[in-house]
Design a protein around this nucleic acid. Structure first.
Length: 174
DNA sequence: CGTTTTTGACCGGCGC
DNA sequence: GCGCCGGTCAAAAACG
């Protein structure tokens, strides 16, 4: 990607308060997947490839388990693009700066943890997210965003919890 | 009293 | 066609 504006040393100004409370070493992967390319790693493959957790980004990233999906995702921007984040957290629902309405909860196969479905509460905004605990290590939460917000975050400077990084990355990568 | 959560029902895609 | 599975709907309850 030619211009990936987020890095630990150069956080998005809109999310300036975020990185202080966010342990990048706990951030293990992100990926975009519109389902149209075999180049994307599956979620399971990514989970298993969590070994490099240096958490570094640059404007010219080399393909690592951290950024390869983001790089690839950039050329496939559409409303069905998805971004997933996995991080250690006791809280299931993190304040990512957007307002969400829960619309479903489902037990999925091969996981002992339920998957929760949320939709952005903003009028006409079709962004959804899924939140579930990692079945392999339930101290981790996996959050998957789908879609692009048609509005700005209503709470740009009013975060109460970490880590707004995820939504910053979510928007920037899409 | 408007908004959100809860929860079983419903639905569509897919493999057999 | 049928059953499984993941995703969504919607009515009622809960919430603030």
């Amino acid at each position: 990607m030619e211009n990936f504006p987020y890095s630990p040393s150069n956080p998005n100004p809109n999310f300036i308060d975020a990185s202080e409370n966010f342990e990048l070493s706990d951030y293990n992967y992100l990926f975009l997947d519109d389902g149209s390319s075999d180049d994307f790693l599956s979620q399971n493959e990514i989970v298993q490839s969590v070994s490099d957790s240096s958490g570094s980004y640059s404007n010219n990233p080399t393909p690592t388990s951290h950024n390869i999906k983001c790089m690839k995702g950039v050329k496939k921007v559409d409303a069905k693009s998805r971004v997933a984040f996995r991080f250690r957290s006791e809280l299931e629902v993190l304040d990512d700066g957007f307002k969400w309405r829960k619309y479903g909860k489902k037990m999925v196969k091969n996981s002992s943890n339920p998957r929760n479905y949320y939709k952005c509460s903003s009028e006409g905004c079709n962004v959804k997210k899924r939140v579930e605990r990692d079945n392999e290590d339930s101290s981790y939460v996996i959050t998957t965003y789908e879609g692009i917000h048609n509005h700005e975050s209503p709470y740009v400077r009013h975060y109460t919890q970490f880590p707004p990084n995820n939504i910053a990355l979510h928007n920037l990568c899409l």
